[in-house]
Amino acid sequence: MILQIEAKKCKRTGFLPAVLLAACAASAFPILNMLVRAETFTAMAGTPFDILTDANWQMMAMLNMVLVICGACLMYHTEFADNGIQKMDVLPVRAGSLFFGKFVLLVLALCGMLLLETAVLTGCAAHWFPAYTWTFSETLQSAGFQLILTLPTVMLMLWVASACKNMWVSLGIGVILVFVMTILPQDSTVLQLFPFNTPYKTLATVQGAGDVPLFLGICGAETVAFGLFEFVFLQIRRWYA
C-alpha cells in the first residue's frame, strides 16, 4: 500500500526517466572506453569482466551515487515543498513506513540500474574478448554484491534527506560526503567500510583480498543500524516538533 503511494508521488517528478538516463549514462562508459581504446584492454592479462570493471567502475559507481543522492533529495523535497509531510503525520500511517516506502523504491531503482550496468559490462566483455565465456550466475553475483555495498549509502542519504527541510542542505551534505570519501587516503580497511566509500569496491578486488564476508556483513549491519537510527530520530523529532 505505502509503496504504491510512494510510487505515485514520484510519478511526475521525473524520477523514473532520471533513473533510466543515469543507467544509460553509466552503461555508456564501458562501451565508449572499448570503442576508443579496445587494444589497451584486450592486451591486458586477467578475466575480461574484471579488466572492464577495474577500468570503468569508479565512474559508474560515482554516477550511481549521484542518482541515489538526487533521488533521496527529490523524494523528500516533494514532501517538504508544500508541507506534505505534516499532512502525512495526521494520517493513520506510521511515520517510519513513509521512510521505508521511499527506501524500497530507491533500492528497486538502484537494482534496475545495477542489473543493466553489469549486463552491459558482461556484454562488452563477451563482444570484445572472443575467448570469454560468461555465466549468468557470475553477472548476478556481481550485481548483487554491488547492491549490498550500496545499501548503507542509500539509507544514510535518505536519513539526511528526511532530516533537512531545505533541499540544498541535504544535497550539499550528500555531495560533501562523496567528496570527502574521494579525497581521504584509501589505505585503511576501516575507512573503506564507510558508506559513500563501499560502492567503489568491485567484487574481484574484494575477493582478491578475501574480505567478501567482512564487506557484506558490515554493509548489512550499517544498513540496519541507519534504519534503526532513523526510527529513533523520527521519535525524537516528534517529541520536539
Binding site: T13, A22, M59, L74, L171
Partner: peptide, 16 residues
Amino acid sequence: RTPIFSVGIGLASIVP
C-alpha cells in the same frame, strides 16, 4: 524546472 534533472545533469557532468 524539475530539480532532479537540473541537479542530476550538473553533478553527472562533473564525473567524466
